[in-house]
Amino acid sequence: MKKTLLALSLASASAPLFAADYSDGDIHKNDYKWAQFNLMYAVNELPGESDHDYLEMEFGGRSGIFDLYGYVDVFNLTTSDSSDKDGASKMFMKFAPRVSLDALTGKDLSFGPVQEVYLASLFNWGGGGTGDVNNAFVGLGSDITVPWLGKVGLNVYGLYDQNNKDWNGYQVSTNWFKPFYFFDNGSFFSYQGYIDYQFGMKDEYSSASSGGVMFNGIYWHSDRFAVGYGLKGFKDVYGLKDGEAWPGAVTTGFGHYFAVTYKI
């Protein structure tokens, strides 16, 4: 899916809500890591109004100057001939490493709601052959404090289309993970999601100059498991104009995502 789930792990959600300080030279004091398996089912995913199952192997963490997030999706697990993914790419990977400029320089670069500043990158790789997704993004990132939501990731990138060997617009991405209701046994409900919005795309590569997605998920979490539902809104997704990208194209609307998670 997505990017993004978005998603931040429980470990990242518990990260301290104050400016990073690496002036003591200890760049590993905020290190953590997490990984999980998400068994997913998508309903009306766009573009193409596809219903399909997939397994998502999701991971993230912090190690010194590096802040890492990524996932690998494997589609049509039973290789069903009736799946909407039959004959399509079997896999998709997103990898989003960021380099902390605070940790790299040993200086506190925070200001206002900005806790930490990064050199941000993002890679989207399809599992098919020539012509499948092969994009690289590079720009600036940050962790900011937002009322009620807490720590939110905010990144601004330029997009380099590696298939066309050309730059093609920009993307603003944000993600969040907000526990909002706790049970006596320590489990909780969270509101988690992300926004990816592209703009400034070129006519020669895109039928729409802008477009994007917003994912809104409500999940129940325990130490080892999670179960959730997400509503994802699409608007001319990937620069494909609704009704124009191809005959009968549907690239604007809503999709539904159901997830069962095991945390490693």
Rank of each mutant, 00 (worst) to 15 (best):
L46N: 13
Y181T: 07
A226F: 14
L231I: 11
D223P: 04
Y194E: 03
G129F: 06
E56S: 15
L8Y: 12
Y32R: 01
F95S: 02
G128T: 08
Y257G: 00
F177V: 08
T174W: 07
K165A: 14
Y238K: 05
G129C: 00
L101V: 10
N216Q: 05
F234I: 10
I195G: 00
N38W: 11
T261P: 09
V99L: 15
D73L: 14
Y22E: 01
A11N: 14
G127S: 08
A20D: 08
K33I: 01
S142E: 01
G153T: 11
V213Y: 04
L17F: 03
P113H: 03
F95T: 03
D31F: 08
D161P: 08
R98A: 13
T261L: 04
Q36V: 11
N185G: 04
P179F: 07
Y219E: 10
L104G: 07
Y205F: 15
V117A: 00
T261C: 07
Y257Q: 11
D166E: 13
F75W: 06
A208T: 07
F177W: 04
D21M: 02
Y170W: 13
M40V: 08
Y194S: 09
N124Y: 12
N76E: 03
D24R: 05
H256F: 14
R98M: 11
D143G: 00
Q115I: 10
Y229W: 11
Y160E: 05
N168R: 12
L5S: 15
D108Q: 04
V72F: 13
E244T: 14
F215V: 09
A7Y: 06
G248Y: 11
D196R: 00
S121E: 05
Y32Q: 02
L122H: 11
Y32K: 00
G127A: 09
F189Q: 01
L159I: 15
S187E: 00
I218V: 15
Q198N: 05
S9Q: 04
M1T: 13
F66C: 00
L159Q: 12
M93K: 02
A136C: 01
L231V: 06
K3L: 14
G64L: 14
G153Y: 06
L55K: 12
Y118C: 02
N216F: 05
S110Y: 09
F37H: 04
L46M: 13
F183E: 00
M57A: 09
L5I: 15
L119P: 04
A13V: 14
G212C: 11
V172S: 04
F182D: 13
T145E: 02
F189C: 03
F95P: 03
G87D: 05
H256Y: 15
G141K: 01
S82M: 06
L149P: 08
V114S: 07
Y229H: 10
V72I: 15
V237I: 15
G126Y: 10
L17R: 07
A245W: 03
D166G: 08
L104I: 11
L5N: 09
L101D: 02
F18K: 07
D73F: 09
F189T: 02
F225K: 08
S222G: 01
W220K: 02
D196H: 01
F215E: 02
